[in-house]
């Protein structure tokens, strides 16, 4: 067994520098790498390009990095619910590239799978396709989209073992599995880090080969963005 365990978040984030490109898992605030984000704030690295479906809210998730002006560019599919984001975007301080959600997922997966690019019908005929190569397949138009190139991927799983094998829970899975192995170094944080042999190999969602470092997060707030309930 190749051991991927690191003892703490400081070791897990070793090598993160200014101006790097980072992938961060999560959908809204669901399944975000909370501990890694908190440590990025502490490290105060600047000029970051962040690939993440959303940009958090004002005081949680990637919003924490925005508050400290650590992000130079966001690549996302949806960035509402964040006033500071809006302010920085409108003032030109923050560069924003909005891309379709499925394209975002597939550009991660392409990087993971060793495909240099993919063709997708999403965005054809819209401003998203401007300046991009277009090709027709079976009478339908497609847009060429390149695999992402990132320095670090920060993902969050429910459980993991010391070999880096990961199991996700519920819709907190989202982009996390697609980002594993899609950057030069993948850092997985888990709610529960278990000894090897504990997880059933049949139930592993992401094999440890896609993960370079794994650690157990100290604390998880798991904030709910839109609490919706029904009456009993």
């Amino acid at each position: 067994m190749i051991n991927k365990k690191v003892d703490n978040v400081t070791l897990a984030l070793q090598g993160v520098k200014d101006n790097m490109t980072l992938m961060l898992g999560g959908f809204g605030l669901c399944g975000i790498p909370e501990n890694s984000i908190a440590h990025l704030v502490k490290l105060n690295v600047k000029g970051l390009t962040c690939i993440s479906n959303n940009a958090g809210v004002d005081d949680f998730g990637l919003g924490l990095l925005l508050q400290k002006h650590q992000i130079k560019k966001m690549i996302s599919s949806y960035v509402g619910e964040n006033d500071e984001f809006e302010r920085q975007m409108l003032s030109g301080e923050l560069d924003v590239e909005l891309i379709p959600q499925g394209t975002l997922a597939e550009r991660c997966r392409a990087a993971q799978a060793g495909f240099p690019a993919i063709y997708t019908p999403a965005g054809y005929g819209t401003e998203v396709a401007e300046g991009k190569e277009i090709r027709e397949f079976d009478g339908k138009m497609h847009v060429l989209e390149y695999a992402f190139k990132a320095d670090f991927a920060f993902v969050k799983a429910w459980k993991g073992d010391e070999a880096g094998n990961l199991v996700f829970k519920g819709s907190a899975r989202n982009f996390n599995p697609n980002m594993c192995g899609a950057a030069k170094i993948t850092v997985a944080e888990v709610e529960e880090l278990v000894p090897v042999g504990t997880l059933d190999p049949n139930h592993i969602h992401i094999p440890g080969i896609f993960v370079q470092r794994i650690f157990q997060g100290e604390v998880y707030e798991k904030r709910i963005e839109q609490l919706t309930v029904r009456q009993r």
């Binding site: 949806y78 959600q101 499925g102 999403a122």
Partner: peptide, 11 residues
């Protein structure tokens, strides 16, 4: 705010 999944869905 962004297109989210709408462009993938309609395409």
């Amino acid at each position: 705010k962004g297109m989210g999944g709408a462009m993938d869905l309609v395409a």
